[in-house]
Design a protein around this nucleic acid. Structure first.
Ligand SMILES: [Zn+2]
Ligand SMILES: [Zn+2]
Ligand SMILES: [Zn+2]
Ligand SMILES: [Zn+2]
Lengths: 133, 133
DNA sequence: CTGTTATTTGTTATGTCATAACATAACATC
DNA sequence: GATGTTATGTTATGACATAACAAATAACAG
């Protein structure tokens, strides 16, 4: 449905790093990992992240000031995504809920608010960390 | 219903500053405003903010890395609050939606996720800024 | 009142996240 | 190959947040 974004070298490196790690990373975490690949300055990372986020290939977690590769299990790239972030193991689950979206849209409509973007993030403990084995 | 928290001097100064301004302020914004009152270091502000947020008298806006006084119109201090942040005028509206809360709780229940805190923030343009006059 | 404990405050230094500004290189398209 | 556009490299700086320790103050039992 969406076009292949054709990543540049830096974008590819940054996305690969996020995917390999699987859990949220700060831009400086990524920078540290990619020193060997010639990435030397924060801006190189932030610029790549901007594009990846815009393309829906990565997400910014506002409550963490960090980034994570899109899980992409379902085609959620249109519409509101929620994140559940485990504070113990760092895992992130993405889920989309049409009802939540509908309620937020409904509130906006009633209030005359024009939404540009929405953030829905849960912080807590994931199932795996609650029952250790 | 909840007891009067009995604010300390610094907490009172910081809350007053937030209330007077009405729109989100960073800790350093507050610091700048309160230099005259003897507040000299970021930590004094952050410590006061921690307590105010814990008491529900102020809120942290994750997507802004900033803080705002609680609007407190309704007794929303128990349960999930959503924020609509105008990117034009900086105004913030708080609202609580039981259905959203229920959906998030439902997802958590199904997934075995134990939620410690939730963030719901909309960024966009408020009614006043959409229709200027 | 007095000693003990817990909380709050003051202060310095440092750590972490993000962007401004400007120069250069790569790439497309005519 | 000139031109406009996008991506990069680099240095410096700005913005947000906390560590660590010392001093003052509040709370409270004896
Ligand atoms: Zn995703
Ligand atoms: Zn976990
Ligand atoms: Zn509130
Ligand atoms: Zn507005």
């Amino acid at each position: 449905m969406t076009e292949p974004p054709k990543l540049t070298r830096n974008q590819d490196l940054v996305l690969g790093c996020l995917q390999k790690t699987g859990t949220p990373m700060s831009a400086y975490d990524i920078l540290g990992q990619l020193k060997a690949d010639g990435i030397k300055a924060p801006l190189q990372v932030y610029r790549a992240l901007d594009k990846l986020v815009a393309a829906g290939l990565a997400h910014r977690l506002e409550s963490l000031n960090a980034f994570v590769a899109c899980a992409g299990d379902e085609c959620h790239r249109r519409g509101l995504i929620a994140f559940a972030i485990c504070e113990t193991c760092g895992s992130v689950e993405e889920f989309a809920d049409a009802v939540i979206r509908q309620r937020l849209d409904g509130w906006a409509e009633e209030s005359g608010f024009h939404t540009h973007s929405a953030t829905v993030e849960l912080r807590g403990t994931c199932a795996g960390c609650t029952r250790p084995h």
